[in-house]
Amino acid sequence: MIRASRLAPLFAVFALGSVHADEVQVAVAANFTAPIQAIAADFEKDTGHTLVAAYGATGQFYTQIRNGAPFQVFLSADDSTVQKLEAEGETVKGSRFTYAVGTLALWSAKEGYVDANGDVLKRNAFRHLSIANPKAAPYGLAATQVLAREGLTDKVKAKIVEGQNITQAYQFVSTGNAELGFVALSQIYKDGKVSSGSAWIVPSSMHDPIKQDAVILNKGKDSAAAKALMDYLKGPKAAAVIKSYGYEL
């Protein structure tokens, strides 16, 4: 069952699974949408708890959490935002851990458009390049680091179209509004291969590590479902799903 929640109108919000006695409200980085949806069904079946997820940009979730949003668990797209919340007293001490390490990809919906080494960037023959907002989305920040490393920042500046989060950056490319863009590999990858279009999987050495941390927020301190979710994300079933979407653990 999918039902609407009243959380954060800026984001798509879904409840996954049937209603049970205990729910956990989770803020999920947009890049992790598909994996958490896949994990949620097993989580409910195995634990009896329901996962209620809101998807969006990590930076925007930080602001919402600081302003009292009712999230109990935060699955961030980086580690620094969670560390900041921890330092500010917004999290349950000792609950933070890295649940995935993300991979950046340069992707086009067109077959054969992006070569295996990303040379399409250097040729600079495209009209639009999509990236996520680097101030709010860690994958967007990683994209800017790649462009800087390649000496392309000024050359492509006028061609960049910026999505509010990594989902919107992906949508610009998938709809043809941008010929190519930097996305999370998890958005285009399943079971060991790129599922559509063409892509360059960016070497991790070209940008800061995208360590994605999870943490129980203060509102989840006494929630059995919140603790159960954190334990579940560390288990073998969740690990298999996370790996299948191109993440490292």
Rank of each mutant, 00 (worst) to 15 (best):
M1H: 13
S5I: 01
F11G: 08
V13T: 05
L16E: 07
E23N: 12
E23L: 06
V28Y: 01
N31T: 08
N31G: 14
N31K: 01
A34L: 05
Q37I: 10
I39P: 09
I39Q: 06
F43P: 05
G48N: 02
T50L: 08
L51E: 02
L51T: 12
A53T: 00
A54L: 00
Y55E: 07
Y55H: 11
Q60F: 11
I65L: 02
I65H: 05
A69E: 10
P70M: 13
Q72N: 12
Q72E: 15
F74C: 04
S76H: 10
A77C: 11
T81F: 02
T81P: 15
V82C: 15
A87M: 10
E88W: 05
K93A: 13
R96Q: 14
R96M: 11
F97R: 09
Y99C: 12
T103W: 00
Y113V: 07
D115H: 11
V120P: 07
K122R: 15
A125P: 04
I131W: 15
N133V: 09
K135F: 08
A136V: 06
Y139V: 15
A143Q: 06
Q145P: 15
A148R: 15
K157V: 00
K157M: 04
A158F: 06
E162G: 13
E162V: 12
I166Y: 10
V183E: 13
V183A: 08
S186E: 02
S195A: 13
G197I: 06
W200V: 02
P203A: 04
S204M: 12
M206L: 12
P209Y: 11
K211F: 02
A225V: 01
A228E: 01
L229R: 03
Y232K: 08
S244T: 04
S244Y: 01
Y247S: 10
L249K: 14
L249G: 12
